[in-house]
Design a protein around this nucleic acid. Sequence first.
DNA 1: ATGAAAGCGCTAACAC
DNA 2: GTGTTAGCGCTTTCAT
Lengths: 370, 370
Amino acid sequence: MLILPKYHAIDCVIFNAGNSVYLDMRMQKRATIHDIAKLLNITSGTVSRALHNDTRVKALTKKKVLDAAKKLNYKPNTNASNLRTGDSKIIGVIVPQMDINFFSNVIVGIEEVASKNNYNLIICQSNDLYEKEKASVETLIKQNVACIILSLAGGTENTEHLVEAVKHNIPLIQFDRTDENLLTDRVVNEIDNIVMDMMQHLFDQGYRDIAYMAGPQNIDIFKKRRTAFEKSLEKLGLPYDAKKIISYDLSRASAKKAAEKLLTRKKRPDAIFASSDFGALGAWEVSKEMGLRVPEELGICGFSNEFYTEITKPSITTVNQFSKEMGQAASRIFFESLHRGAFEKPQTVVITPELIIRESTTRLPKKANH
Amino acid sequence: MLILPKYHAIDCVIFNAGNSVYLDMRMQKRATIHDIAKLLNITSGTVSRALHNDTRVKALTKKKVLDAAKKLNYKPNTNASNLRTGDSKIIGVIVPQMDINFFSNVIVGIEEVASKNNYNLIICQSNDLYEKEKASVETLIKQNVACIILSLAGGTENTEHLVEAVKHNIPLIQFDRTDENLLTDRVVNEIDNIVMDMMQHLFDQGYRDIAYMAGPQNIDIFKKRRTAFEKSLEKLGLPYDAKKIISYDLSRASAKKAAEKLLTRKKRPDAIFASSDFGALGAWEVSKEMGLRVPEELGICGFSNEFYTEITKPSITTVNQFSKEMGQAASRIFFESLHRGAFEKPQTVVITPELIIRESTTRLPKKANH
DNA sequence: ATGAAAGCGCTAACAC
DNA sequence: GTGTTAGCGCTTTCAT
């Protein structure tokens, strides 16, 4: 069954181009190694070896084969070689959404390393839905991908579908939003210290009444950030107040609503630490609407260094997660294990994030260099 | 040869998890239809038919096959069926960069339609380099993808590599940055009217000395936008002045430099129309630095409706290109032709963009509703 | 240095 | 309704 979207409700013109050579360009049939073999009166085995630059093949034969391949416009059929060798040279990637900066950057990192190793990427979106993630894993298993690199969907309830992949000998590499109960390779950010550093920074800037916008608690990374926040309160000797911790679902709308709730309390916090940049953006928007001066009356900071945090006035303090590097590391784990030729105990690569202090939390004059 | 990036220069910790069941979970061998057949004492042909819900197979047999498949944890091997049928159910996508909002949105649109039709995406980045684009096309041909959807790299000099794909019976669908000499299906935005509309808007707001930031002229879409700009000057009875048209390479740095050049001229323009949002952002940044009041002293508008144009103060007037819809339309073209089962004359889908008027160009009070 | 041949897992035409 | 069989294009072992 064919499923198609309607064209968008906006105006839309479709027209046909004039007579074209489009059809005429098409070949009858793709050349195979057999065609090359026939042309040269040798066997396809030799052709295959020649194309793989096997040392046993005579230089002259190699040259002839290469020439014939060019002449016949031969392209190897990866499906056939995959079937034969059981190796697809494809990495499957599953992310919640690829139009989120963080994820597209990770993908760029994965792709960079993959393409250098002549691997391709099949990219799936889970849209944060368990069912879609499950379907994606299924597809990738069928495609016989060499490995799956993924960040868990917010809605993922259990990880049986991932175990399934491992059962089919497909190594799994989790990044960022991971399930710790699933012992696989993983790439994550260090959390406790960076949250503490951010809190120390807020403290140093004189903020004492710090509210927290917590992400979805079923995603372990957001749970961890929240726990780290609570621990840091203690370390700084600040009181814990459940009312100062508010949840939101990472969307912009929900972020705004959450920020509004915090900022309209009778005892307004003097700073908001959001577990994502959308959270910080929401706080920033509400502060504008309320006419609050940032950073004087309200400090704001987020997490991820999304592009817009640099653009806002005042610019927003945040955390650089080194997303591209996370992708590179994930790819690297795979290619290293491939190189070793054996599974090993799962590795965890912990990437230390970096504080990016901007205007939204800088209300004291800089200390002189010492 | 194995090529790996170093971990990022930042701190990095790697450790092994405790003893895991990771290894033990792996299966000996993936089940095939033959395994199912053996188990049930039938032939693999029947199994294949049963799995495809062929009407000729007895209901009981179907049930048995399905049960056995589940029991053996059978997953079809797409490589094998692709090889047999010559149909990969994969769409190849090539974009300059996937971490640009516009492109990741298009990809989301493509993916949406593709996944509904049980097709997967292999996504390649050209990084605006001709060589990388060429290599990507090569890979996609080898993968025997069902079609290639692409937006040309800035650096693409000729389109022989694309003709190559068509020669291998792989339909090509161009979007946004297209080559008109290559007669393929395409999805583009309407340009002349939207540029004229923007110019009319600027004119209505009293801007008379409008400068233009032109993108790379080897990309036809940027050439067209520029031509449309020049035509609209004429229509509005404004003088053409070559000094008011400046080129930049779409990067943020180059945008800033270009804007600086325009705004430090002795006769400063009263508006800047940039051919991309990065251009507009550059102008916006320079205006801030120079203390120019926007929109009073300088009008700024861009193209693409990147997220940050909404965030800046003042927010930036721009053009909604309906990127996601472009992706959907591209996918749709493919599936429609697939459904028809034949090539036809190349189609062009023209999507009408939408003016998004924001603060950066609104200096007159709104007219009352009539 | 090359040929011969088997087979990866699946589909589909043909036979009964 | 099911079995038989050939073969998609490639790799690779075993001969020679």
